[in-house]
Design a protein around this nucleic acid. Structure first.
Lengths: 226, 226
DNA sequence: GTCGTTCCTCAGCGAGGGCTCAGACGGCTC
DNA sequence: GAGCCGTCTGAGCCCTCGCTGAGGAACGAC
């Protein structure tokens, strides 16, 4: 909500990437590019985008395979597939492997934008959502957490941070990724805000001596796990 | 001069949406459109409409599923379902999942309007409606509140604001949402009317030293909760 | 006109919460 | 066991957000 929506564009055609990137950036999205399937998977892991725009036909790992792997990784990422004209079988295969929608090349930017909007709408947190992990609950509407029944008040930043963890349980989130998502920094100088907020969260979540849920992964980042 | 009634129209057929929107707008309603179930849920969350007009047959999340999700979110929204001709099982299923009424396509606008009026009458002011939260009561007809038995006089604006809170208990309502509902602003310049009225309400509701019910969520908005 | 009511504006203030910093801690490597 | 690097911790600064009290504008009743 507060954090900007991230879109990953995977296409081996640099021209298409550029057009799409510029257009989407102008619309206020954060755009990451990848020129191949391999790079796409890597960038997806690195940035946890909300939406992936994916060309089917690429040398190496193609769009279908990328879709398959993204889906098997468990995150709920929206996938918009770009297919060549008249390649009906591609579109069918795309939807079957798990793409959420497809767009036939060539397309106008407006068409693309319409699909993007539609897909992102679907992704956004549905009403009444309560995220759970172990004995921890986060009521997104009420913006409050609870653990083992006791209510926990959170400040905005704490809430955003915990939300990120709960959306990606059991995944190690790197410092950079967290900073980028919760603080929207491409920060230059060093700062230890993240450590400080992890501490705040821990102290609130473990106030009654409960087990640690946010674990430090030295040299990497943090994970939410039992 | 109470807040305008909001109606959300969810149908994948743009023509139907347009006809319905124009007609209802002419009748003085505020209309929001959505072209899919997903978008419908999103718009419902964003605008908190009083009534949803919902097509059953839609690709993706269909009308039944939308109904289910709206109902599970706890808000009391009136739902009018649009079903294809002769699809009796749809109508039954619709009512079973929680729709309040249905209308068979094709329909005349007058028929639709009649149902809309009927539903809104039933929903918004079933005579003698009293909203409650904790020890707070709001008599919608009399436009007056009471807490722990003692009667509280409210001005129009105070009433509208409290009504909004009582219709969405335990939900954080953003400033923008509240402004939009109670003041019908798409306000440009800054104003702190909202803060002022929250203050008025608080001072009236807590005149005898009772616990706070309207809580500030810094950086976000306000919630009604114990 | 005067009075009362309600809506809204404004400016000052207080504190919540975001962030920084320095030093302590602790796990790894050698 | 020593040293180092990465993380944790406690203290504290400071800015912004929201709260407050006062008062002016608009409106209607009389």
């Amino acid at each position: 909500m507060s954090e900007p929506t991230r879109i990953l564009v995977v296409d081996d055609d640099a021209k298409i990437r550029t057009v799409v990137r510029r257009g989407l950036a102008y619309e206020g999205y954060r755009v990451v590019e990848a020129g191949s399937g391999e790079e796409g998977l890597e960038k997806a892991r690195e940035h946890l985008p909300d939406l992936v725009i994916l060309d089917v036909m690429m040398p190496g790992i193609d769009g279908l395979e990328v879709t398959r792997r993204l889906r098997s990784s468990g995150d709920e990422i929206a996938i918009l597939m770009l297919t060549a004209r008249d390649e009906v079988k591609d579109r069918v295969a795309g939807l079957e492997t798990g793409a959420d929608d497809y767009l036939v090349k060539p397309f106008s930017f407006e068409e693309l934008l319409a699909r993007v909007h539609a897909l992102l709408r679907r992704r956004t947190t549905p009403s009444g959502e309560i995220l759970r992990f172990a004995d921890l609950e986060l009521d997104v509407d009420a913006r409050e957490a609870s653990r083992a029944g006791r209510t926990i008040e959170l400040t905005t930043t704490e809430f955003n941070l915990l939300l990120l963890f709960l959306r990606h349980p059991r995944k190690v989130l790197t410092r950079d990724l967290i900073m980028e998502h919760v603080w929207a920094y491409d920060f230059e100088g060093e700062s230890n805000v993240l450590e400080v907020y992890v501490r705040y969260l821990r102290s609130k979540l473990e106030a009654n001596g409960e087990a640690r849920l946010i674990h430090t992964v030295r040299g990497a980042g943090y994970v939410l796990k039992e």
